[in-house]
């Protein structure tokens, strides 16, 4: 093994995340040996015992590549995003949460006050007569305790720092990560800054093996339990709402391969600022009604347009949050 080349320094960090993105990095399986042969992991809280102060002690741009997963929802997330930006040559927004806000970004349908009220006052399992709420600072007799500040808005990574690349998915398909990693290792020409990488230049439907017809003629959408999937016809044509037409390929249509509709985690195509807007257009073309009452009935069957079309992308969408 030619070890003359200095190894890449790699960091993986999570903001407001579920842990799935970090696990997807572990999913490289035996490819991990290629990774380890070519890189030293210098920071990765889920797997290795490095502390924040170790990162703080690094010279600027010490890390070659940082995979930042998770959204930015607390002051700690923001602090670490800024710190890692400063210490990294290439900062990659890894996964849907860092890319467009992801599942934690759904909290932008509400606000901090309503969330706290629900969690600390109202929830069935809560007993909190003094209405204690978490605060960034509290004085106890042993001294002052601090917590990160919980923000009102959930942010995408690029709403707080400059991002070099975006690698979408919830979580990203591991093969795509390995391809990107190998491109960096071999010194291949990297795409222009700001690119979405590890994706295809086509929508999910283009890779989908299901039979599709030009005219969809859908009268209404159904809940999954109302339909017996024939296993071969486009899910939208069977009335199961599938985000495939508005979602960028890259995952291998893995949900539809598993007979579940695409939920849109790979985000919109290049140059499309709003995934939901595209899906609304796509649905309008698939429905067949012309009279207002037919249309009303059809649209009524789209139970939760905002939550469905922006499941992974509310903070990164044009309107960003509930007004």
């Amino acid at each position: 093994m030619g070890n003359e080349k200095p190894k890449l320094k790699l960091a993986v960090y999570w903001g407001a995340a579920c842990g799935g993105c970090c696990v997807s990095v572990l999913d490289v399986h035996e490819k991990l040996f290629d990774v380890v042969a070519n890189a030293d992991i210098v920071f990765w809280p889920i797997a290795l015992d490095f502390k924040y102060k170790d990162v703080e002690a690094m010279p600027d741009q010490h890390i070659d590549v940082t995979l930042f997963n998770g959204a930015v929802r607390t002051s700690e997330n923001e602090h670490m995003a800024k710190l890692l930006r400063q210490k990294s040559k290439i900062l990659i927004a890894y996964g849907s949460c860092a890319h467009m806000g992801g599942i934690p970004g759904l909290a932008n349908f509400t606000n901090k006050e309503d969330l706290f009220k629900r969690v600390y006052d109202e929830s069935e399992s809560t007993e909190n007569p003094d209405k204690v709420r978490p605060t960034p600072e509290v004085q106890v007799k042993e001294g002052k305790l601090t917590l990160p500040k919980f923000y009102n808005d959930v942010m995408t990574l690029n709403q707080v720092v400059d991002v070099d690349y975006y690698l979408p998915g919830c979580p990203p398909q591991t093969e795509r990560l390995v391809e990107v990693f190998m491109a960096v290792v071999t010194g291949a020409q990297l795409p222009p800054k700001g690119s979405v990488i590890g994706v295809f230049d086509r929508v999910q439907c283009d890779d989908c093996k299901r039979k599709k017809s030009d005219k969809k003629n859908i009268t209404r959408f159904k809940r999954a339990w109302e339909v017996t999937d024939d296993g071969e016809t486009c899910l939208n044509e069977q009335g199961i709402l599938c985000m495939g037409p508005a979602t960028r390929g890259g995952c291998g249509v893995r949900c539809v391969e598993g007979n579940a509709p695409c939920r849109g985690c790979y985000g919109p195509m290049e140059g499309i600022p709003d995934p939901g807007a595209k899906m609304m257009s796509a649905i309008a073309s698939m429905l067949e009604g012309k009279e207002q009452d037919e249309i009303d009935k059809a649209i009524e069957s789209v139970v939760d347009p905002a939550g469905t079309f922006y499941r992974f992308s509310l903070p990164g969408s044009i309107l960003r949050r509930k007004i």
Binding site: I283, A284, D296, I299, V302, A306, F309, L319
Partner: peptide, 30 residues
């Protein structure tokens, strides 16, 4: 008006989009 679109069906498509958009806008607090 319905039936009068120069491109035959553009306004029906518009009406379907609009109805969906309205529902979304309502959820967004507009």
């Amino acid at each position: 008006h319905p039936g009068d679109c120069h491109y035959a069906e553009g306004n029906y498509k518009c009406l379907r989009r609009f109805t969906l958009l309205q529902k979304y806008a309502d959820q967004m607090g507009i």
